[in-house]
Amino acid sequence: MKLTRVGASVAMTAVAALALSACATNEAPATNNGSAAPAEQVEQLQGELTGSGATSQETAQATWKAGYGSIQAGVTVNYGADGSGKGRDAFKSGQSHFAGSDRAFKTDEIKEGGFSQCAEGSGLVEIPAYISPIAVAFKLEGVDSLNLDAATLAGIFKGEITKWNDPKIAALNEGAKLPDLDITAVHRSDKSGTTQNFTDYLNKAAADVWTEKAGEEWNPEYGGEGAEGTNGVQQVLGSNGTIGYLDASAAKDMTKAKIKVGEEFVELTPEAAAAVVDASEIEEGRTELDLAYKLKRDTTESGAYPIVLVSYLVGCAEYKDAEIGKLVKSYFQYVTSAEAQTAAQEKAGSAPISEELRGKINAALEKMK
C-alpha cells in the first residue's frame, strides 16, 4: 500500500477522533513529570503509524507499541526492523512516518532536503530514545574481576597485547592472578552498529593506539576471532581466554570488565550508561528540535560508562499532514516517558534516559507539529 493512501486514511480517522474527543484536556500520553497518563486523561486518537529502522530498537519497539496501545487503543503502530540505513531511506522517501536509527541524520543530509513527509521548510526532530550499553565481556578461569583502560583495550583488540599476563593488563589489576594464556579477542564479522560504537570509543578515548576512525566493519588486519551477530559472539565467549564486545542485554550472565574513566574504574550499569549522554553535548549546527549528541567518549565524568550505542527516533519538526504529526508526536512522547523507558529496560536491557535528558526531549517535542 502506498503511503499516500495510508496518510489519507490516517487523516480521516484522526479527524473523526478529534471531533469525538473535543472535551479532552491533554494532547499527549505523558504527564509533565515524564509519567504516562491514564488513557481516560488523554485525547483518544485514531490512525495508523508506520516506522522502520534500527534492529537495536526491535525489542524496545515491541514493548513500546504494547504500552502505547494500552493508552491509545485507536492507534496502530507498525515498526519494521530493517536496519538504520534502510529506515532513514524509507522515512526520507515517504515510505514510513518515522525512523529508528543508530545515528542521527548528518547536517548536510538534512540540508539536502527531500523529506517527503515534512512540511516545506521543516527541519527534523531527532531524539535519543534508546540507550544501549555495550559490555566488554570476558571469560578467564580464576579471574572474576577485570579493570581495563581505553589504551589497553585498544591494544588487545588491535592484536598488540596478546597475553593475559601482559604487564599493561597486570598494572591495572594489582593482585590478580593473570595466567600466561593467549588472548582471544572476539569481534563481529558482520556489519554492526555495535562495532561502529565500540571502535568510536577506542578512537576517541585511545587515539594514540586506535588511529583508525570508527566503522561498522572490523578491520581484518587486527586479527582476532570473528563471529556473526550477537549470538555468535555469545557462543565464542564461552571459551576460556576470550574477550569480546556485545550488547549488554546479551551479556547478563557474563563477567564484564570495568572501564577506566578519569581516575576510577566504572562498572556497567544503566545509570552509568545514561550518564555519558548527560556528559555530552549536542552537535553543532543542530536545531532546537534536533537532539543529536556528539558523545564524549573520553569523558572523565565520575560514574559515566562511555561505551554505549545511542539510537534515535526521527520524525519531522512539522509534518505536511498535521494529523500524522499529532500521532507521531504522541508516540514519541510516550516512548520517552519514564514508564516506557523502564519497560524497555526490563525487556530489552536498555538504559533509561535520565530526567535531565527527558526534560530536553519534552521541550523539543512540545514544538513538534
Rank of each mutant, 00 (worst) to 15 (best):
A14K: 00
S9P: 00
Y331L: 12
K65Y: 03
V276E: 10
G155R: 13
A24I: 03
T25R: 13
T300V: 15
H187T: 07
A227F: 03
Q46S: 09
E126G: 04
V77A: 03
E160T: 10
V15I: 09
V261T: 10
V233I: 15
G69E: 13
V42N: 05
F98C: 02
A279D: 11
S9R: 01
S116P: 00
V125N: 03
V261H: 04
A104T: 15
K111G: 08
A151I: 03
E323P: 00
P133Y: 11
A207R: 01
P38L: 07
Q72A: 08
Q61Y: 10
D298Y: 11
A90H: 05
G85A: 12
A292N: 11
I71Y: 05
Q61R: 07
K296M: 09
D290N: 14
I282F: 10
S330W: 07
K320T: 05
I183E: 09
V77K: 01
P270G: 11
D182A: 15
E271M: 10
T55A: 06
L178H: 11
Q41W: 07
A129R: 05
A30E: 08
S330E: 05
T342C: 00
S35F: 07
G175R: 14
V136N: 15
T211M: 14
Y334H: 06
E225V: 08
A340R: 15
A90T: 04
V136C: 14
G85Y: 02
V10A: 00
W64H: 10
A119L: 12
T255S: 12
E120Y: 06
L291R: 00
T50F: 11
S189D: 12
A273C: 13
V310S: 04
S132R: 05
C316R: 08
T287Y: 01
D102E: 15
V136K: 11
I110W: 05
